[in-house]
Amino acid sequence: MKLGSYWLLVLKVRLDDGFKLYQKVQVLMLEIKNLHVEVDGKKILKGIDMHVRAGEVHAIMGPNGSGKSTLSHVLSGRPGYEITQGSVVYKGKDLLAMSTEEKACEGVFLAFQYPVEIPGVNNAYFLRESLNAIRRHRQQPEVDAMDFMALMKEKLEIIAIKKDLMRRGVNEGFSGGEKKRNEIFQMAMLEPYLAILDETDSGLDIDALKAVAHGVNQLRQPDRSMIMVTHYQRLLDYIIPDVVHVLADGKIQLSGDKDLAKELESRGYDWVSAA
């Protein structure tokens, strides 16, 4: 009897492990296959392959002009890019077939490398319209002004962003760091499943970097994946990635764990291309 229950226990543990493993393999958030992208006839992405599972954080590093922002833009549907080959499947759906706003409503979020200023459109107002557009798409009830304010208050604390920025126009006159924080704040408000952070760490001072990293870490959850584009290993000290990719010349040249970032920091990118 004793022996039997021991084996049962072992079997249960094995099954649980197996189930977790199964889940991990199964719940693919994003699958990019052989993606080729051109801008004005110029080949920029030349066969990207990438798998991002639910809950994972991927870092993409790579030299200037290698196509990191291009990839981010294509994933979020910016017009002006021609996809000549390949496919992108997001949560089992064809991402490339969706419009920009559909992607957003389905839970794709891009934190811009260069957040756009929209003078005259109030930040808080804009966010509420966005949130409600997304909620309508998901057949959830809209949030009223009161609930919205409460939600905003909660998220403002997580991101440590000044409240009065919300009363101003979208990014209007924000400092570089404030704009980046605002992107993360929007992410916190809109609760995406796939967040793409394009150089959110660039231009941040040490304290701001820590605050943003803290915010991002708070938003890590089993059903949310993140792709972080960065030039600095430093960010990855605060947000530990599951996978690090090196994008150069329009292709993922190398993938590895967080130690790859350290190696890049000391050896530069030439080493990758040579490898």
Binding site: G77, P79, S99, T100, E101, A104, E129, S130, I134, Q186
Partner: peptide, 18 residues
Amino acid sequence: QLFYLRSRGLSEEQAKKI
């Protein structure tokens, strides 16, 4: 600006209106 608003879930028409 239009892309920015749309990337946050607003339809093209709404974004233009705003």
